[in-house]
Design a protein around this nucleic acid. Structure first.
Length: 558
RNA sequence: GGCGAGGUAGCUCAGUCGGUUAGAGCACUGGCUUCAUAAGCCAGGGGUCGCGGGUUCAAGUCCCGCCCUCGCUACCA
């Protein structure tokens, strides 16, 4: 059977998750995984934190924490956020804590070196005598030699945008101690992306089908691919393999090189814990494995070019990504979500206050799939009240409470003479029925969410046409048949909802008298006349309760 | 500076290969219904598709120019 590895962008362990992250890479992955699993497919869901890199060491130093505990704190925050939103992975690890990660990364390095895709080069770099370290990129500041602005960073001048070569600074300063660094020679290894592109990856990329928003980005990327240094002079990170000798002393792999390897390392970690340490190969080196990377658009170069190049370059039979459903950005009040900039709110608190499934649903229905999109609390409240409480929730209560009052709280009987009419009416004449999973497979989560609501509308129309409150008096048997049909429909509704709103789906499932897990049911797909019914008449129903409470916009936001 | 994205109804967004009176949801208006969470159903109003040119029998959809917003520029989904 086909296997699918689903990864969500490794989160940079440098701050809390906000809705942009959730809507961009984590929630869609979770919905995708849940859907595929109900469809009976074998899925592995992987995520974790990206713990290395200069930005983290600087932030940790500023916070007065050691690197390991700083990173552990944000990794913990990430897990708590996933829990709060019911986002589940098979493994959530971290590049600095996963026991397999360092060896995994070094093995990639070694194999790439062996296969001739790494070049060793000597370069000059600024060294701070006071702090006894080479100063990577942003550890250096100076006066921009182009526009004269002070405070240019070692990689770019924020005033004029010039790419800075820190060696050209007339007044370089160490960002840590402020002293003047000196130039020293150092050795680094470069990943030969141009060679990889020309050999195979370029063709693979061109032949691959990408989302429209990814396609344009990549075209450009391919034209001008530089070699990239994949090592750094610093201590926080994965040290180099022994075969590079003394030249590798005091150096680590550059963060973007080791980060995506985390997907592989974390899989190894998981399989070891499961007692099948070799099983990771079945996934990563299996012929019919689909590899799907959920990321935000900022990560496109790595997941569409760099990481595939690495996977190819080691020549160990790794699969290449089959899809990279990169989302655009999710905005708040016209600007990007930013925890440091104050344009955000606490995700865990939000989900607690407004309900997890309602939050999941709203994020799905506004996800930035094709273009940047906007989060709005006002629309959140409207969606909660109209689509969820009004259309879906009220459908359940109007049907089930009516049955509780008038039909002994058991599933009413479908009388055979009515079967054909009922099936025709609800399956054909009350509007189009859509299969949410079909949209999910195309990474159209908005449409999928809309489809769940649209399908509930079909049943609401059916209720109005049948008017069971009148039919009960005129033709009680037909009323029973209609209500039986509606119970069937609700059981489909619960399954359609499950990947998006797991808790509410389960509640609805139990209201129908079910005692097992709705998430363990096979995916229902589209109902077909003659085969779509599966309930037993006379079976006891559960207690009908309002699925979704109506909510109100706080006055402060109105 | 370079690159990219977007500018379509009051709001949030769809619009596949250019092709009949430009779509959806929400909001708004009117009607129906009363089973239900003042929920549901039906109908309706509302847009010179950023601006100006061009190609075409035909352009929101292709080409050129301009204006505006935003993002990225290789570690912030």
């Amino acid at each position: 059977m086909a296997r699918t590895i689903v990864t969500s962008a490794l989160l940079y362990a440098n701050g809390p998750l906000h809705f942009g992250h959730i809507a961009g890479a984590y929630l869609p992955a979770d919905v995708y995984v849940r859907t595929l699993r109900m469809c009976g497919e074998d899925v592995l869901a992987v995520s974790g934190s990206d713990d290395h890199g200069v930005a983290i060491t600087i932030s940790a130093e500023k916070a007065g924490e050691d690197y390991a505990s700083y990173v552990a704190r944000w990794n913990g925050n990430m897990r708590a956020t996933f829990d709060a939103l019911d986002i589940r992975y098979d493994v959530v690890s971290g590049t600095s804590t996963c026991p397999e990660h360092a060896d995994s990364s070094r093995e990639f390095f070694s194999r790439l070196l062996e296969n001739g895709y790494l070049a060793e080069r000597q370069t000059k770099q600024l060294f701070c005598v006071h702090d006894d370290m080479f100063l990577a990129d942003r550890y250096v500041e100076g006066t921009c030699y182009k526009c004269g602005a002070d405070g240019a960073r070692g990689d770019e001048c924020p005033s004029c945008g010039t790419w800075i070569d820190p060696l050209e600074f007339k007044d370089p300063r160490c960002k840590i101690c402020g002293s003047t660094p000196e130039q020293r020679t150092t050795t680094h290894w470069y990943l030969d992306l141009p060679k990889l592109r020309d050999e195979k990856i370029g063709a693979w990329i061109r032949d691959h089908e990408w989302k429209a928003n990814v396609e344009k980005f990549i075209e450009n990327l391919l034209e001008d691919v530089p070699e990239r240094a994949i090592t750094r002079d610093m201590s926080w990170g994965v040290s180099l393999p022994p075969e590079v000798g003394d030249a590798g002393e005091g150096k680590v792999l550059y963060v973007w090189f080791d980060a995506p390897i985390g997907y592989v390392s974390f899989t190894k970690e998981l399989m070891r814990e499961r007692g099948t340490p070799e099983a990771w190969k079945d996934w990563w080196q299996g012929e019919d494995t689909q590899l799907v990377h959920f990321i935000g658009k900022d990560n496109i170069p790595f997941h569409c070019l760099v990481f595939p190049s690495m996977l190819h370059g080691v020549k160990d039979g790794y699969v290449l990504p089959s899809a990279v459903p990169a989302n655009e950005f999710y905005n708040l009040k016209g600007g990007k979500f930013s925890t440091s900039g104050g344009n955000a709110f606490d995700v865990v608190e939000f989900a607690k206050e407004w309900d997890v499934d309602t939050t999941r649903f709203y994020l799905c229905s506004t996800m930035p799939e094709t273009a940047d999109s906007e989060f709005s609390l006002e629309q959140f409240v409207q969606t909660a009240n109209t689509s969820l409480a009004g259309t879906i929730g009220n459908l359940a209560t109007r049907v089930l409470k009516f049955i509780a009052k008038n039909f002994d709280a058991v599933i009413p009987t479908l009388h055979d003479p009515h079967r054909e009419e009922m099936d025709r009416l609800i399956l054909e004449e009350c509007g189009p029925i859509e299969d949410p999973a079909a949209h999910v497979r195309e990474f159209r989560f908005r449409r999928a969410a809309e489809a769940v609501v649209a399908n509930a509308t079909v049943a609401n129309i059916f209720v109005d046409r049948m008017a069971p409150w009148a039919l009960r008096k005129e033709d009680p048997e037909k009323a029973a048949s209609a209500l039986n049909t509606l119970c069937e429909w609700l059981s489909w509704q619960a399954r359609w909802m499950a990947p998006f709103m797991p808790t509410k789906a389960q509640q609805l499932w139990e209201m129908l008298g079910k005692t097992d897990e709705v998430a363990s049911q096979p995916w229902p797909g589209l109902p077909q006349a003659g085969t779509w019914r599966g309930l037993d008449a006379g079976a006891a129903l559960g207690t009908p309760e309002a699925l979704f409470p109506r909510v109100q916009l706080p006055e402060s936001e109105a």
